[in-house]
C-alpha cells in the first residue's frame, strides 16, 4: 500500500482504432462527476429573478454575482473562522508529524515498534467512540466552544496520519546520511535541523495539504466543539441548508464558496494531494 504516483505514469501501449470508443464511457463518467459542479456554477451565476428550480439546468443568460454576494454575506464570518482554525492546525500538525516521523524512522528507541501501530490505530477510530469524554475534557480545560480547542483536536487526531506520512518519507532517505552526520558529531536535533528538515519540503507539502483539507472539510468535531460564534464554514453551510429561510440558489453558491479553497489546492497541487491519498491509503 505504499504505491506512489510515479507508478501512475502513462505507459506506451500499442493503440488500436477501436480504443477511441473508450472515450464514450469516459465522457459519460465525466458528466456524472461534473453534474454537481455544473448546477452549483450555473445557479450561482444567475440573477435572482432568473433562478427557479424548474430551470435549474439552463445556463445563466449572463454572468451575475447576486447569489455569490448573498452567500458570502451570510458565510464570510464562518469562512474567516475556518481559515483561522485550519491554518494553525495544518502547520502545527506538520511539525509534530515531522518530528515524530524522524524519530520513529531514524532514532528508533526500544518499544518504538509497538508505539507506531498503537498510534496508527488512532486514525481509524470512529470519533463517536470518544466524543463524550472529549467534550467533557475540553470543558474541563476551558477549551470548549472556541477555535483553539478545535485546533488542538485536529492536531492531536492528526498525529497518526502525519506521523505515518513523514515516517514513510524519511524511511526512504538513506540512513547513511544521518549516520554520517552522527559521526561528524552532530546530535539528533542538529541532524534534524541541518540535514533532514531542508529535504523534507515535499513531505511538508503533502501533509499540509492533507491536514488543511481534512480540517476544512470536518463537520463532526466542529459541530460538537464550537459555539455558533465560532462555527467553521461547514457547520454554517449545513445550518444554512437546513433552514427554510435561505433559498436553494444561495445554498448552491454557498456550497461552491465552501468547496473553493480545497478545490483550488487540489487543482494547483493535485499531485501532492494524490500522494497523500496513496501514501497513507490507510486513511479514510
Amino acid at each position: 500500500m505504499t504505491t506512489t504516483t510515479s507508478s501512475l505514469k502513462i505507459r506506451f501501449r500499442p493503440r488500436l482504432k477501436w480504443k477511441y470508443l473508450l472515450y464514450i464511457p469516459l465522457v459519460f463518467l465525466a458528466i456524472f462527476y461534473l453534474l454537481p459542479m455544473y448546477v452549483m456554477l450555473a445557479t450561482g451565476f444567475k440573477g435572482f429573478e432568473e433562478v427557479s428550480l424548474q430551470t435549474m439546468w439552463n445556463l445563466p443568460s449572463g454572468i451575475r454575482f447576486d447569489n455569490f454576494a448573498e452567500a458570502l454575506d451570510k458565510l464570510s464570518p464562518y469562512l474567516l473562522n475556518s481559515l483561522n482554525m485550519v491554518i494553525p492546525a495544518a502547520v502545527i500538525s506538520s511539525f509534530v508529524g515531522s518530528i515524530n516521523g524522524y524519530v520513529l524512522s531514524k532514532w528508533k528507541f526500544p518499544g518504538a515498534d509497538i508505539i507506531f501501530p498503537l498510534l496508527l490505530f488512532g486514525m481509524f477510530i470512529p470519533y463517536q467512540s470518544i466524543l463524550i469524554p472529549l467534550v467533557e475534557f475540553m470543558k474541563t480545560i476551558h477549551m470548549y466552544g472556541g477555535l483553539s480547542g478545535l485546533v488542538l483536536v485536529h492536531v492531536i487526531y492528526g498525529i497518526p496520519i502525519t506521523t505515518l506520512t513523514f515516517r514513510n518519507y524519511y524511511a526512504a532517505i538513506p540512513t547513511g546520511l544521518v549516520e554520517a552526520a552522527r559521526i561528524d558529531g552532530a546530535n539528533l536535533l542538529k541532524t534534524y535541523w541541518y540535514i533532514i528538515l531542508p529535504i523534507s519540503i515535499p513531505a511538508f507539502v503533502v501533509v499540509l495539504i492533507w491536514q488543511f483539507t481534512s480540517a476544512w472539510n470536518d463537520f463532526l468535531f466542529a459541530v460538537v466543539l464550537t459555539g455558533s460564534q465560532n462555527w467553521p464554514i461547514t457547520v454554517a453551510l449545513n445550518n444554512m441548508a437546513g433552514s427554510q429561510i435561505i433559498a436553494w440558489n444561495v445554498q448552491m453558491a454557498g456550497s461552491f464558496i465552501t468547496a473553493l479553497p480545497t478545490l483550488f489546492i487540489y487543482i494547483v497541487l493535485g499531485q501532492y494531494f494524490l500522494r497523500g491519498l496513496m501514501a497513507g491509503s490507510l486513511k479514510g
Binding site: P36, L53, T213, M252, T258, T262, Y266
Partner: peptide, 17 residues
C-alpha cells in the same frame, strides 16, 4: 476531485439534485 470536497458540500448539492 470530489475527494477534495467536504461531505457537507456534496450533501447539500445532491440534496437539490
Amino acid at each position: 476531485f470530489p475527494m477534495a470536497i467536504s461531505f457537507i458540500v456534496t450533501g447539500v448539492v445532491w440534496r437539490w439534485l
